[in-house]
Design a protein around this nucleic acid. Structure first.
Lengths: 213, 213
DNA sequence: AACAGGAAATGAACATTGTTCAAGCTCCAT
DNA sequence: ATGGAGCTTGAACAATGTTCATTTCCTGTT
């Protein structure tokens, strides 16, 4: 009746995610995991090389879920026949905001971890998951009647999503009271509105072309 | 000849900043500080309640310097007679980008620390310093011929700056090779261009007014 | 059924860290 | 000179990540 190795890995990840969500990265302790999973400290190190690997695995799952959530939100709008670019981007942003709200402890940990990774070389699965998010946004932009080639659309998607990301993460440094949530949403609406208008006019790239350093 | 208490505090902060910049938050160790400062571990705890306070103090200094850098950049343009809003915002963004580049280790630590603080209650000096940055941006926007009341201008300033922040921090997860730097700058240029155009048209707030949740 | 071999689990042990605090020390006003 | 307030010290403690020799458990073989 003992759990499979794979099942135990799942159990450990679920526990780790809960620990991260409750107390952030500092709360992910080998002994806490072992105790809650009913195994010994050493066994945790049999499943994962170190706690970093546990943290990474939890983050991967979160990013995966976030991507799925975004795709689901897009599919919903598709089914409803909503094609307006502004609406669709706002829906993506809303999905993102909801996701961050739903993971108040672990989402900061995802970001901090991602940043800490900076010294390491080369891209990895982490980047692939983030790129997937950018691709969804780029797909939405493609549906608009903007005059953009693939490169510019990709750039616009990354710019837009990094901006949304900045708004959400800057906003959620404080407690998630409704004032904060309302402020974040107002900023997102302004950003998206301005962005869509700017792209529609077609002149957004005019300066960038002539002034790049 | 022994150092003043204040001088020693300065020395400790300088050492702490160097440690943070070299190895991030994990590299800020009481024993490292003590050793490099030529004092005992206990003495560090006489100057600061704990390492968090050291970290906070370092961050304050960094935010202070960032604000001063931004103001200096604005003063430069003023002296040159540059009034174009787009140029001035780009200059602010450039100052921000340069600052982050100059503190590759400690800037992430500032952000992570700021985020970790999330559970605590109420605002503090930290928020005041961040607000000061927003105010500079709002000041620049005020010079534009946008049709904005104070509230909307403040909202626009926060939105714009959070977006720049998101672009810069998303971009600098990787090593600071020139590809990364170039990408960041293209995104910033696109964002600022789109933003200014969007505000100029005056319609950016039309949707936000009617659709707020 | 008995046994051998290997895989997995164990938890004691080690190294590193933040933090505390009793004991000593310094130095200045009296 | 001396009293004492404050400073400094570094040993000691607790919490933690990580390792590894030992034990336990299972599985296939005879």
């Amino acid at each position: 009746m003992a759990l499979d190795k794979e099942e135990m890995t799942e159990k450990v990840l679920a526990i780790a995610e809960a620990l991260l969500n409750e107390g952030g990265a500092d709360n992910l302790k080998a002994r806490s995991i072992a105790e809650q999973a009913g195994i010994s400290v050493g066994s945790v190190y049999n499943l994962f090389a170190d706690l970093d690997e546990v943290h990474r695995a939890v983050n991967m799952r979160l990013l995966d879920r976030l991507g799925a959530t975004g795709l689901a939100a897009m599919a919903d709008l598709e089914r409803q026949g909503v094609t307006d670019v502004r609406h669709r981007i706002l829906a993506m942003a809303a999905a993102y905001v909801r996701f961050v709200e739903a993971h108040p402890g672990s989402w900061p940990a995802v970001l901090a971890f991602n940043r800490r990774r900076a010294t390491r070389p080369g891209p990895d699965a982490y980047d692939a998951l983030l790129d997937a998010l950018f691709d969804i946004v780029a797909g939405v932009l493609k549906a608009g009647d903007f005059d953009l080639d693939d490169d510019r659309r990709a750039l616009a998607a990354r710019t837009l999503w990094s901006s949304v990301h900045g708004i959400v993460t800057s906003g959620y440094v404080a407690n998630s009271n409704s004032r904060q949530a309302e402020e974040i949403w107002r900023q997102v609406e302004l950003l998206v509105g301005v962005f869509v208008k700017g792209l529609e006019r077609g002149g957004a790239f005019a300066h960038a072309e002539t002034k790049s350093a």
